[in-house]
Amino acid sequence: MVERSDRFPHIQLKFERAGIAASPQGGGKPNAITSTNTSNRQGHGSKLKSSLDSLICYWQDSQKTREEEEKPPLPEKAIPIILQIDPTAFDARAISF
Score class of each variant (00 low, 15 high):
residue 5 S to H: 03
residue 89 A to K: 02
residue 64 K to Y: 00
residue 47 K to H: 05
residue 94 A to Q: 10
residue 91 D to P: 04
residue 28 G to C: 03
residue 2 V to A: 07
residue 10 H to D: 11
residue 88 T to C: 06
residue 7 R to S: 09
residue 45 G to W: 07
residue 63 Q to E: 12
residue 67 E to L: 10
residue 88 T to Q: 09
residue 15 F to P: 04
residue 63 Q to W: 06
residue 92 A to V: 14
residue 20 I to F: 09
residue 56 I to Q: 07
residue 11 I to D: 06
residue 8 F to D: 08
residue 42 Q to N: 03
residue 15 F to K: 09
residue 58 Y to F: 00
residue 97 F to M: 13
residue 28 G to I: 10
residue 23 S to Y: 09
residue 53 D to K: 14
residue 62 S to I: 04
residue 62 S to P: 00
residue 63 Q to P: 00
residue 86 D to R: 03
residue 73 P to N: 08
residue 59 W to K: 04
residue 76 E to R: 00
residue 81 I to M: 11
residue 79 I to F: 09
residue 56 I to D: 01
residue 80 P to Q: 08
residue 95 I to Y: 12
residue 89 A to H: 01
residue 64 K to V: 05
residue 81 I to E: 01
residue 44 H to C: 05
residue 36 T to A: 14
residue 76 E to W: 05
residue 35 S to F: 00
residue 20 I to K: 09
residue 78 A to V: 05
residue 18 A to P: 03
residue 38 T to H: 03
residue 66 R to W: 00
residue 54 S to K: 12
residue 35 S to Y: 05
residue 69 E to I: 02
residue 65 T to A: 13
residue 41 R to N: 08
residue 33 I to G: 07
residue 36 T to P: 06
residue 22 A to W: 04
residue 72 P to G: 05
residue 56 I to A: 11
residue 88 T to H: 00
residue 43 G to L: 02
residue 24 P to N: 13
residue 32 A to S: 13
residue 28 G to A: 10
residue 39 S to H: 11
residue 52 L to D: 06
residue 82 I to R: 12
residue 92 A to W: 10
residue 63 Q to I: 02
residue 61 D to Y: 01
residue 71 K to L: 15
residue 60 Q to S: 10
residue 81 I to K: 01
residue 10 H to Q: 11
residue 75 P to F: 01
residue 60 Q to N: 15
residue 28 G to D: 08
residue 26 G to Y: 08
residue 67 E to I: 02
residue 76 E to Q: 10
residue 15 F to T: 09
residue 70 E to V: 03
residue 69 E to A: 12
residue 44 H to E: 07
residue 83 L to P: 02
residue 11 I to A: 07
residue 92 A to C: 07
residue 37 N to S: 01
residue 55 L to Q: 05
residue 64 K to H: 07
residue 31 N to Y: 02
residue 72 P to V: 02
residue 17 R to D: 13
residue 87 P to D: 11
residue 5 S to K: 02
residue 9 P to Y: 07
residue 22 A to F: 06
residue 77 K to T: 02
residue 89 A to M: 06
residue 37 N to T: 03
residue 7 R to G: 04
residue 75 P to E: 02
residue 62 S to E: 15
residue 3 E to Q: 09
residue 84 Q to W: 10
residue 31 N to I: 08
residue 61 D to Q: 12
residue 37 N to H: 11
residue 65 T to F: 01
residue 10 H to S: 10
residue 60 Q to P: 04
residue 77 K to L: 00
residue 87 P to S: 04
residue 60 Q to H: 07
residue 39 S to T: 06
residue 81 I to T: 07
residue 64 K to I: 03
residue 26 G to K: 10
residue 53 D to C: 05
residue 75 P to D: 08
residue 40 N to K: 14
residue 43 G to H: 01
residue 2 V to C: 06
residue 24 P to W: 11
residue 40 N to T: 06
residue 85 I to A: 14
residue 49 K to Y: 12
residue 29 K to I: 14
residue 82 I to M: 07
residue 84 Q to F: 14
residue 45 G to D: 05
residue 71 K to E: 14
residue 69 E to K: 15
residue 94 A to C: 00
residue 45 G to Q: 08
residue 22 A to V: 13
residue 28 G to N: 09
residue 69 E to C: 02
residue 96 S to E: 13
residue 64 K to T: 10
residue 11 I to H: 05
residue 23 S to M: 12
residue 86 D to N: 15
residue 85 I to N: 09
residue 95 I to A: 06
residue 55 L to K: 07
residue 67 E to K: 15
residue 97 F to H: 14
residue 78 A to S: 15
residue 14 K to A: 13
residue 64 K to E: 09
residue 87 P to K: 07
residue 67 E to F: 11
residue 71 K to T: 04
residue 83 L to Q: 08
residue 59 W to E: 10
